[in-house]
Amino acid sequence: MNLKLKIWRQKNANDKGAFESYDVSDVSPDMSFLEMLDVLNEDLSRDGKDPVHFDHDCREGICGMCSLYINGKPHGPKDAVTTCQLHMRSFKDGDIIVIEPWRASAFPVHKDLVVDRSSFDRIIQAGGYVNVNTGGVPDANEIAIPKTIADQAMDAAQCIGCGACVAACKNASAMLFTAAKVSQLALLPQGQTERHTRVERMVAQMEEEGFGNCTNTGACSAVCPKEIGQEHIARLNREYIGAKAASDNV
């Protein structure tokens, strides 16, 4: 099939950037979306033009590096998949595809479609861990964890940190990302000791990074490749309110 692409091009963080149009032909429905871009880039390179820069790595939907806001939706039209797992059979001949980078003040553009998501790392650094050193920990089976709790924690822990939640949210809020980690550790017994401090610090860092506020539209869960649900944001709210009311941190 033949497609028309409108892709955001921006030389670097200081460049203003603009859309450019490209025609790609003979696209096979078995190609992944990123392979279609590979083909475009090979053609551009042969013509001596700068290839389109985009983030990607594992190409099996788990590393969270690929992004792309495709025709108004992070990771494209299919639910519960990342861009790298999106295949061209989801499009049809003659389609116009508009590709934009994630847009958020907390995700500045590096180049073309590549954005800086280090704000996510800093949110985790603020408290997304259990304070244990290597060694000196109890036997793994010392604490039984009910299967339902472990399963819920796993639901949250599946977050791949891609940032689609922020990209989809009309407020560019990072609540779902933050909630996923807070929720995972709040559910597990290992996370209890630092429960209050963790949520206070992570939310404070999230605010500092300049993400917007959650207005419960649910757009984040709708585009999440791992389908992380709104109940985790509710748990984050609960944890935060509880921590603010009860913690010793004045």
């Binding site: 409108k6 955001w8 025709n71 108004g72 039209p77 508009v98 847009r103 989809a168």
Partner: peptide, 8 residues
């Protein structure tokens, strides 16, 4: 802002 409004 995005050029294409949210398709959600």
């Amino acid at each position: 802002k995005y050029a294409v409004s949210t398709n959600d």
